[in-house]
Write a protein that binds this DNA or RNA. Structure first.
Lengths: 226, 226
DNA sequence: AATTTCATGTAATTCGTTACATGATTCC
DNA sequence: GGAATCATGTAACGAATTACATGAAATT
């Protein structure tokens, strides 16, 4: 029972390591702050939270506003619930983080792990990055072989689609190479304790990750991305 | 009932336009020949084929080997079934191909459509490409805005993940720009009739699509991509 | 003779969404 | 006072997978 992809569970635990939160806020962070732009709905999230509580990894606390506790005790009022990670939950998350099973290299699993790299160590990061890379190289090899086999039978558009797909994977590999390199260069420098956030917002070389050009700099025209 | 994503249905109809096939072969082509490297399992494919037959878009024919018809009539022997597109099926596919609904710009829908671009016309191709591009530009805008809002709160890895994600989308837009340009240049030149395949395998400028460097050329070490 | 590939299907299960139902709080 | 956003949930449904069950044909 409960095979579950684990990504949601993993991400929830990881986010709650930083701070206790409402389900509502958790969902927002899941959809944005986390590098994965994948959307999770309440229909997925709330039941998941319940099972995490049942496993003892989270506890429910009355909402932060002082009147909530009172409110909840009255009539049919719905309580606002803040979820907090328990010690067991913390332990479990740490285990998931360093236990690099065979799915850990898949697209979304990898992205989820990567998003929490700040909470793990150099060794684990290297293992995950290298695992991911070799997984992608395998994929590339298959694509190459498959293309070689079917090349003549394909029309221009199908061919172009495959070419482009392979190129994307190749780029992904190059990205991993960069990451691995700067991981090697930076060594343990950025294994940060606890869910520490980034406070140095200015430009100085921060040590670990590769610096890129400004093409991705946020647009001044901000706001209301629905 | 049967809301179904439609991608599988669409792809099956498109592949069967070229030639009648067994479910088995269909699945293989779905996973490779088509630029989408997405895997479909039998558990998905066979039931889908049944409903397509029920809709009158396909008919089942006895397998190509002459003994199959006989074999099927005996005891509990399982028949080999070749699926062939009916006239109605052809019509339906054409409709799906040119009818660019709101999902048509989504990742997989787009890829599926693109894979069958050879079976449609310049106008439809332009509409799909431009729709896809503006969809991606919207996405990019949201990502930019979201990043601008949360930048300071994110740690280096999460930030890098987002940066990389945005860069991928930017690349995708550039690819579409190239395609749109060569589509404009080539005009109707390559609206090919029926499910025609590519027979000119040599290097001469074939007219429509952009030519790329050899980085994606198939590896001489071929074979057995499981 | 054994193994791989061809070939067709079903049942149980997983993961997730949409639509619905409800209500409090904050902003304008 | 009305709209947007905060906040929590459930029921029905959708799309697809995995594991199972079966067996024929081709290859080594």
């Amino acid at each position: 029972m409960s095979r579950r992809s684990g990504i949601l569970e993993f991400a929830v635990l990881g986010l709650l390591r930083e701070a206790p939160m409402h389900g509502y806020e958790l969902r927002k962070r899941l959809n944005t702050s986390l590098g994965i732009f994948r959307a999770f709905s309440y229909g997925t999230l709330y039941p998941c939270l319940k099972t995490l509580v049942a496993n003892g990894w989270l506890i429910e606390e009355p909402g932060s506003a002082p009147e909530d506790a009172l409110a909840a005790s009255l009539a049919g009022r719905r309580a606002k619930i803040v979820y907090r990670l328990t010690a067991e939950g913390k332990e479990h998350f740490e285990e998931l983080l360093s236990h690099t099973g065979p799915d850990a290299w898949e697209d979304e699993h990898f992205a989820a792990r990567f998003a929490f790299f700040g909470q793990t160590e150099h060794d684990v990061r290297m293992r995950v990055l290298e695992g991911r890379r070799s997984r992608l190289e395998e994929r590339l090899e298959k694509m190459r072989a498959s293309l070689a086999r079917t090349r003549e039978r394909l029309d221009d558009y199908t061919l172009e689609l495959q070419r482009h797909g392979m190129e994307s994977v190749e780029r992904e590999v190059r990205w991993l190479n960069e990451l691995i390199e700067s991981e090697r260069a930076g060594r343990d420098q950025r294994s940060r304790p606890e869910g520490a956030a980034r406070h140095d917002n200015d430009s100085g070389e921060t040590g670990g990750l590769p610096r890129h050009g400004g093409s991705t700099r946020p647009d001044p025209s901000d706001d209301t991305a629905k």
